[in-house]
Protein backbone atom coordinates (compact mmCIF):
# COMPACT_ATOMS: atom_id res chain seq x y z
CA UNK A 1 0.00 0.00 0.00
CA UNK A 2 1.20 3.44 -0.93
CA UNK A 3 0.87 6.29 1.49
CA UNK A 4 -2.12 8.47 0.64
CA UNK A 5 -1.12 11.76 -0.94
CA UNK A 6 -3.31 14.79 -1.37
CA UNK A 7 -3.66 14.00 -5.03
CA UNK A 8 -4.68 10.36 -4.55
CA UNK A 9 -7.05 11.33 -1.74
CA UNK A 10 -8.80 13.92 -3.90
CA UNK A 11 -9.05 11.39 -6.70
CA UNK A 12 -10.57 8.88 -4.31
CA UNK A 13 -13.13 11.39 -3.05
CA UNK A 14 -14.06 12.19 -6.63
CA UNK A 15 -15.00 8.56 -7.17
CA UNK A 16 -17.00 8.52 -3.96
CA UNK A 17 -18.84 11.72 -4.83
CA UNK A 18 -21.78 10.48 -6.97
CA UNK A 19 -23.00 7.90 -4.48
CA UNK A 20 -22.23 10.21 -1.59
CA UNK A 21 -24.33 13.00 -3.11
CA UNK A 22 -27.35 10.76 -3.44
CA UNK A 23 -26.89 9.42 0.07
CA UNK A 24 -26.55 12.88 1.57
CA UNK A 25 -29.57 14.28 -0.25
CA UNK A 26 -31.92 11.38 0.29
CA UNK A 27 -30.70 9.80 3.53
CA UNK A 28 -28.33 11.83 5.64
CA UNK A 29 -30.11 15.16 5.28
CA UNK A 30 -33.60 13.70 5.98
CA UNK A 31 -32.26 11.85 9.01
CA UNK A 32 -30.82 15.02 10.51
CA UNK A 33 -33.81 17.07 9.50
CA UNK A 34 -36.32 14.64 10.97
CA UNK A 35 -34.30 14.41 14.17
CA UNK A 36 -34.50 18.19 14.47
CA UNK A 37 -38.14 18.12 13.47
CA UNK A 38 -39.01 15.93 16.42
CA UNK A 39 -38.20 18.92 18.67
CA UNK A 40 -40.48 21.37 16.79
CA UNK A 41 -43.27 22.22 19.18
CA UNK A 42 -44.68 25.18 17.31
CA UNK A 43 -44.23 24.84 13.59
CA UNK A 44 -45.87 26.62 10.67
CA UNK A 45 -45.34 24.34 7.70
CA UNK A 46 -46.78 26.83 5.20
CA UNK A 47 -44.00 29.26 5.84
CA UNK A 48 -41.54 26.66 7.16
CA UNK A 49 -40.91 28.66 10.33
CA UNK A 50 -40.28 27.13 13.69
CA UNK A 51 -41.53 29.23 16.54
CA UNK A 52 -40.58 26.98 19.44
CA UNK A 53 -38.46 23.93 20.21
CA UNK A 54 -39.04 21.48 23.05
CA UNK A 55 -39.56 17.93 24.23
CA UNK A 56 -43.33 18.23 24.13
CA UNK A 57 -43.65 15.84 21.16
CA UNK A 58 -42.12 13.00 23.14
CA UNK A 59 -44.34 13.48 26.15
CA UNK A 60 -47.41 13.69 23.90
CA UNK A 61 -46.26 10.58 22.08
CA UNK A 62 -46.18 8.43 25.18
CA UNK A 63 -49.58 9.71 26.24
CA UNK A 64 -51.09 8.67 22.92
CA UNK A 65 -52.77 5.25 23.40
CA UNK A 66 -52.35 4.61 19.65
CA UNK A 67 -48.59 4.91 19.94
CA UNK A 68 -48.57 2.49 22.85
CA UNK A 69 -50.66 0.09 20.76
CA UNK A 70 -48.21 0.55 17.88
CA UNK A 71 -45.27 -0.24 20.15
CA UNK A 72 -47.01 -3.31 21.50
CA UNK A 73 -48.01 -4.54 18.04
CA UNK A 74 -44.51 -3.99 16.72
CA UNK A 75 -43.13 -5.99 19.61
CA UNK A 76 -45.55 -8.85 18.97
CA UNK A 77 -44.73 -8.75 15.28
CA UNK A 78 -40.96 -8.92 15.86
CA UNK A 79 -41.31 -11.78 18.34
CA UNK A 80 -43.75 -13.58 16.04
CA UNK A 81 -41.74 -13.20 12.83
CA UNK A 82 -38.02 -13.25 13.59
CA UNK A 83 -37.47 -16.54 15.47
CA UNK A 84 -39.93 -18.52 13.35
CA UNK A 85 -38.59 -17.07 10.13
CA UNK A 86 -35.02 -17.95 11.10
CA UNK A 87 -35.90 -21.48 12.20
CA UNK A 88 -37.98 -22.25 9.10
CA UNK A 89 -35.53 -20.75 6.64
CA UNK A 90 -32.62 -22.55 8.32
CA UNK A 91 -34.48 -25.85 8.11
CA UNK A 92 -35.27 -25.31 4.44
CA UNK A 93 -31.69 -24.20 3.72
CA UNK A 94 -30.32 -27.34 5.37
CA UNK A 95 -32.67 -29.48 3.27
CA UNK A 96 -31.76 -27.63 0.09
CA UNK A 97 -28.09 -27.96 0.93
CA UNK A 98 -28.29 -31.72 1.19
CA UNK A 99 -27.94 -33.62 -2.02
CA UNK A 100 -31.43 -33.55 -3.47
CA UNK A 101 -32.62 -33.46 -7.02
CA UNK A 102 -33.82 -30.17 -8.51
CA UNK A 103 -32.32 -28.16 -5.64
CA UNK A 104 -31.69 -25.25 -8.03
CA UNK A 105 -35.37 -25.26 -8.94
CA UNK A 106 -36.41 -25.19 -5.30
CA UNK A 107 -33.97 -22.40 -4.56
CA UNK A 108 -35.68 -20.29 -7.23
CA UNK A 109 -39.12 -21.16 -5.89
CA UNK A 110 -38.22 -20.12 -2.37
CA UNK A 111 -36.55 -16.95 -3.54
CA UNK A 112 -39.51 -15.82 -5.64
CA UNK A 113 -41.54 -14.21 -2.79
CA UNK A 114 -38.58 -11.99 -2.00
CA UNK A 115 -38.41 -10.51 -5.48
CA UNK A 116 -42.16 -10.28 -5.99
CA UNK A 117 -43.89 -6.95 -5.40
CA UNK A 118 -45.43 -6.69 -1.94
CA UNK A 119 -48.71 -5.48 -3.42
CA UNK A 120 -49.06 -8.50 -5.69
CA UNK A 121 -48.14 -10.79 -2.83
CA UNK A 122 -50.64 -9.13 -0.54
CA UNK A 123 -53.44 -9.50 -3.09
CA UNK A 124 -52.76 -13.21 -3.38
CA UNK A 125 -52.60 -13.57 0.38
CA UNK A 126 -55.74 -11.57 0.99
CA UNK A 127 -57.43 -14.18 -1.16
CA UNK A 128 -55.75 -17.02 0.72
CA UNK A 129 -56.88 -15.43 4.00
CA UNK A 130 -60.43 -14.82 2.77
CA UNK A 131 -62.83 -16.07 5.44
CA UNK A 132 -65.32 -17.69 3.02
CA UNK A 133 -63.36 -18.62 -0.10
CA UNK A 134 -59.81 -18.61 1.23
CA UNK A 135 -57.41 -21.49 0.70
CA UNK A 136 -56.19 -21.37 4.28
CA UNK A 137 -59.64 -21.75 5.78
CA UNK A 138 -60.35 -24.53 3.30
CA UNK A 139 -57.27 -26.46 4.42
CA UNK A 140 -58.04 -25.78 8.08
CA UNK A 141 -61.57 -26.98 7.35
CA UNK A 142 -60.18 -30.33 6.31
CA UNK A 143 -58.87 -30.69 9.84
CA UNK A 144 -62.21 -29.66 11.28
CA UNK A 145 -61.25 -26.08 12.16
CA UNK A 146 -64.06 -23.53 11.85
CA UNK A 147 -63.50 -20.69 9.35
CA UNK A 148 -61.38 -17.89 10.78
CA UNK A 149 -61.88 -14.20 9.95
CA UNK A 150 -58.21 -13.68 9.22
CA UNK A 151 -58.37 -10.16 7.91
CA UNK A 152 -61.47 -8.78 9.56
CA UNK A 153 -61.15 -9.91 13.15
CA UNK A 154 -58.82 -7.90 15.43
CA UNK A 155 -57.63 -11.18 17.00
CA UNK A 156 -56.42 -12.78 13.79
CA UNK A 157 -55.19 -9.78 11.81
CA UNK A 158 -51.77 -9.85 13.48
CA UNK A 159 -51.27 -13.63 13.05
CA UNK A 160 -52.24 -13.22 9.37
CA UNK A 161 -49.69 -10.44 8.98
CA UNK A 162 -47.04 -12.55 10.71
CA UNK A 163 -47.70 -15.53 8.43
CA UNK A 164 -47.41 -13.36 5.34
CA UNK A 165 -44.22 -11.71 6.55
CA UNK A 166 -42.55 -14.99 7.47
CA UNK A 167 -43.34 -16.40 4.06
CA UNK A 168 -42.15 -13.24 2.34
CA UNK A 169 -38.85 -13.14 4.18
CA UNK A 170 -37.98 -16.82 3.78
CA UNK A 171 -36.28 -16.49 0.38
CA UNK A 172 -33.70 -13.97 1.45
CA UNK A 173 -32.83 -15.82 4.66
CA UNK A 174 -32.61 -19.14 2.85
CA UNK A 175 -30.18 -17.77 0.28
CA UNK A 176 -27.98 -16.28 2.99
CA UNK A 177 -28.10 -19.49 5.05
CA UNK A 178 -27.30 -21.57 1.99
CA UNK A 179 -24.24 -19.46 1.32
CA UNK A 180 -23.22 -19.93 4.94
CA UNK A 181 -23.81 -23.68 4.85
CA UNK A 182 -21.75 -24.07 1.72
CA UNK A 183 -18.88 -22.38 3.49
CA UNK A 184 -18.70 -25.17 6.07
CA UNK A 185 -16.11 -27.68 4.92
CA UNK A 186 -17.34 -31.19 4.39
CA UNK A 187 -14.35 -32.55 6.29
CA UNK A 188 -15.89 -31.45 9.61
CA UNK A 189 -18.95 -33.57 8.92
CA UNK A 190 -16.83 -36.56 7.94
CA UNK A 191 -14.75 -36.14 11.09
CA UNK A 192 -17.88 -35.81 13.22
CA UNK A 193 -19.35 -38.95 11.67
CA UNK A 194 -16.19 -40.87 12.45
CA UNK A 195 -16.31 -39.41 15.96
CA UNK A 196 -19.72 -41.01 16.38
CA UNK A 197 -21.94 -37.92 16.08
CA UNK A 198 -25.51 -38.57 15.00
CA UNK A 199 -27.17 -36.37 12.38
CA UNK A 200 -28.73 -34.21 15.09
CA UNK A 201 -25.44 -33.91 16.97
CA UNK A 202 -23.65 -32.98 13.77
CA UNK A 203 -26.18 -30.23 13.21
CA UNK A 204 -25.90 -29.03 16.79
CA UNK A 205 -22.14 -29.28 17.20
CA UNK A 206 -20.90 -28.48 13.71
CA UNK A 207 -23.52 -26.72 11.61
CA UNK A 208 -24.85 -24.29 14.20
CA UNK A 209 -21.55 -23.06 15.63
CA UNK A 210 -19.92 -22.77 12.22
CA UNK A 211 -23.00 -21.02 10.88
CA UNK A 212 -23.04 -18.54 13.75
CA UNK A 213 -21.63 -15.58 11.76
CA UNK A 214 -24.39 -16.07 9.18
CA UNK A 215 -26.96 -16.55 11.93
CA UNK A 216 -25.77 -13.34 13.51
CA UNK A 217 -26.09 -11.41 10.26
CA UNK A 218 -29.51 -12.84 9.46
CA UNK A 219 -30.88 -12.15 12.93
CA UNK A 220 -29.72 -8.53 12.94
CA UNK A 221 -31.15 -7.89 9.47
CA UNK A 222 -34.39 -9.71 10.33
CA UNK A 223 -34.95 -7.81 13.55
CA UNK A 224 -34.30 -4.45 11.90
CA UNK A 225 -36.60 -5.36 9.01
CA UNK A 226 -39.33 -6.59 11.34
CA UNK A 227 -39.25 -3.36 13.32
CA UNK A 228 -39.64 -1.45 10.08
CA UNK A 229 -42.69 -3.38 8.83
CA UNK A 230 -45.10 -1.22 6.84
CA UNK A 231 -45.81 -2.19 3.19
CA UNK A 232 -47.25 -5.58 4.07
CA UNK A 233 -49.80 -3.98 6.40
CA UNK A 234 -50.69 -1.28 3.92
CA UNK A 235 -51.23 -3.78 1.12
CA UNK A 236 -52.87 -6.57 3.12
CA UNK A 237 -55.44 -4.40 4.87
CA UNK A 238 -56.10 -2.04 1.94
CA UNK A 239 -54.39 1.02 3.39
CA UNK A 240 -55.70 0.54 6.93
CA UNK A 241 -53.70 -0.62 9.95
CA UNK A 242 -55.86 -3.72 10.34
CA UNK A 243 -59.28 -3.92 11.98
CA UNK A 244 -59.43 -1.75 15.11
CA UNK A 245 -55.75 -0.77 14.82
CA UNK A 246 -54.86 -4.41 15.46
CA UNK A 247 -52.00 -4.22 12.96
CA UNK A 248 -50.88 -0.70 13.76
CA UNK A 249 -47.09 -0.70 14.01
CA UNK A 250 -44.69 2.10 14.81
CA UNK A 251 -43.81 2.82 11.17
CA UNK A 252 -47.49 2.76 10.30
CA UNK A 253 -48.08 5.19 13.14
CA UNK A 254 -45.35 7.45 11.73
CA UNK A 255 -47.00 7.29 8.33
CA UNK A 256 -50.41 8.14 9.78
CA UNK A 257 -49.14 11.09 11.76
CA UNK A 258 -46.99 12.43 8.93
CA UNK A 259 -49.11 11.98 5.84
CA UNK A 260 -52.63 11.71 7.17
CA UNK A 261 -52.63 14.04 10.14
CA UNK A 262 -49.71 16.31 9.25
CA UNK A 263 -48.34 16.03 12.75
CA UNK A 264 -44.72 16.27 11.65
CA UNK A 265 -43.29 16.74 15.10
CA UNK A 266 -45.10 13.72 16.52
CA UNK A 267 -44.26 11.56 13.49
CA UNK A 268 -40.55 12.32 13.62
CA UNK A 269 -40.48 11.87 17.37
CA UNK A 270 -42.01 8.40 16.91
CA UNK A 271 -39.47 7.64 14.21
CA UNK A 272 -36.69 8.69 16.55
CA UNK A 273 -38.04 6.45 19.31
CA UNK A 274 -38.11 3.55 16.86
CA UNK A 275 -34.52 4.32 15.89
CA UNK A 276 -33.49 4.19 19.55
CA UNK A 277 -35.26 0.87 20.05
CA UNK A 278 -33.60 -0.72 17.01
CA UNK A 279 -30.26 0.73 18.04
CA UNK A 280 -30.63 -0.76 21.49
CA UNK A 281 -31.51 -4.19 20.12
CA UNK A 282 -28.58 -4.13 17.72
CA UNK A 283 -26.20 -3.22 20.54
CA UNK A 284 -27.55 -6.09 22.65
CA UNK A 285 -27.11 -8.44 19.71
CA UNK A 286 -23.54 -7.27 19.16
CA UNK A 287 -22.73 -7.95 22.81
CA UNK A 288 -24.43 -11.34 22.83
CA UNK A 289 -22.91 -12.13 19.43
CA UNK A 290 -19.36 -11.54 20.70
CA UNK A 291 -19.86 -14.40 23.11
CA UNK A 292 -21.43 -16.94 20.80
CA UNK A 293 -20.33 -16.15 17.29
CA UNK A 294 -17.29 -17.99 16.09
CA UNK A 295 -15.28 -16.42 13.30
CA UNK A 296 -12.59 -18.46 11.61
Amino acid sequence: MQKPTWKSTLKGYLYLLPALLILVVFSIYPIIKSFLMSFYTDYDFFSDTVNAYGLENFTKLFQDPNFITALKNTGIFVIGVVPLSIIISLAIAVLLNSKIKLSGFFRTIYFLPFVTSVVAVAIVWSWIFHSDYGLLNYILGLFGVDPIDWLTSPTYAMPALIILSIWKGLGFNIIIFLAGLQNIGNQYYLAAKVDGASAWNRFKSITLPLLSPTMFFVSIISIINAFKVFDEIFALFNGRPGPANSALTVVYYVYQKFYEEWEFGLATAAAFVLFLIIFLFTIIQLIVGKKFVHYN
Binding site: G185, Q187, Y188, L190, A191, A192, V194, S205, I206, P209, L210, S212, H294, N296
Partner: peptide, 13 residues
Protein backbone atom coordinates in the same frame (compact mmCIF):
# COMPACT_ATOMS: atom_id res chain seq x y z
CA UNK B 1 -12.88 -46.26 14.28
CA UNK B 2 -10.53 -43.35 14.74
CA UNK B 3 -9.49 -41.34 11.75
CA UNK B 4 -6.92 -38.67 11.05
CA UNK B 5 -7.73 -36.60 7.99
CA UNK B 6 -5.30 -35.03 5.59
CA UNK B 7 -6.62 -31.59 6.51
CA UNK B 8 -6.89 -32.69 10.20
CA UNK B 9 -10.50 -31.41 10.20
CA UNK B 10 -10.21 -30.10 13.76
CA UNK B 11 -13.39 -28.34 14.81
CA UNK B 12 -12.35 -24.71 14.51
CA UNK B 13 -14.79 -23.43 17.13
Amino acid sequence: IGMVFQSYALYPH
